Computed example of a mutant assay.
Amino acid sequence: MEEMKNVVANENFDWSAFENDLGVYSQPKEEIAAAYDKTLSNVNVGEVVEGTVTGITKREVLVNIGYKSEGVISVAEFRYNPDLKVGDTIEAYVESAEDKNGQLALSHKKARQLKSWDRVNEALEKDEIIKGYIKCRTKGGMIVDVFGIEAFLPGSQIDVKPIRDYDIYV
């Protein structure tokens, strides 16, 4: 209460002009708000965006996607690409706008999986034959890598005649 006693109101201040935005801006307020909104990048959760690698630590890869802060991706998601360096452009899936530390949470692995599913669905629509890499065998068939996605291939679908030993295909 004592702090308020020291505040002196300026008698020359025009409160009605302030409240009605008269003379404050040289342009209409809507134009200024629209111009400001164009400078901001809107990031939606669940969206795949392109970004530039700005830093690499032992645990994290920092990615700039044009948002208010840089995104963080675990370095383990780039094991397939040991040549990753600062300045590379990558695709990232937006997991959340802010995690518990206030940083943008991204996933490169999920972005690659979504792109792979798009390629699989495209091949289905065009009735294409796709090639896969057999990773290992299971009790009833094989695990096949198709565009980076692991899929199950039943043993009955490998050949026309029954197969006794799946190991020859691995």
Rank of each mutant, 00 (worst) to 15 (best):
D14T: 06
F18M: 09
N20E: 13
D21A: 13
S26K: 14
Q27I: 06
P28M: 02
P28S: 03
K29L: 09
I32D: 02
I32K: 04
Y36D: 13
Y36K: 15
K38P: 04
T39Q: 13
V43I: 13
N44H: 12
V49C: 04
E50M: 09
T52N: 05
G55A: 10
N64G: 03
Y67F: 15
Y67H: 13
S69K: 15
E70C: 08
V72G: 05
I73Q: 04
I73P: 07
S74N: 15
V75H: 08
A76C: 07
A76F: 11
A76R: 14
F78H: 02
R79S: 12
Y80Q: 15
P82F: 03
L84W: 01
K85N: 05
G87N: 06
D88H: 08
T89F: 06
I90H: 00
I90N: 00
A92H: 00
V94S: 02
E95P: 01
A97Q: 14
D99L: 03
N101W: 10
L106T: 02
S107L: 01
H108P: 00
K109P: 00
K110N: 10
A111D: 03
A111F: 01
Q113F: 14
K115Q: 13
S116K: 00
W117I: 11
D118G: 09
D118R: 09
V120T: 04
N121C: 11
E122H: 05
E122F: 04
A123W: 03
E125H: 08
E125P: 05
D127V: 12
K131Q: 15
G132N: 01
R137L: 01
T138D: 01
M142F: 07
D145V: 01
D145I: 02
V146G: 01
F147A: 11
F147T: 03
G148D: 05
I149A: 01
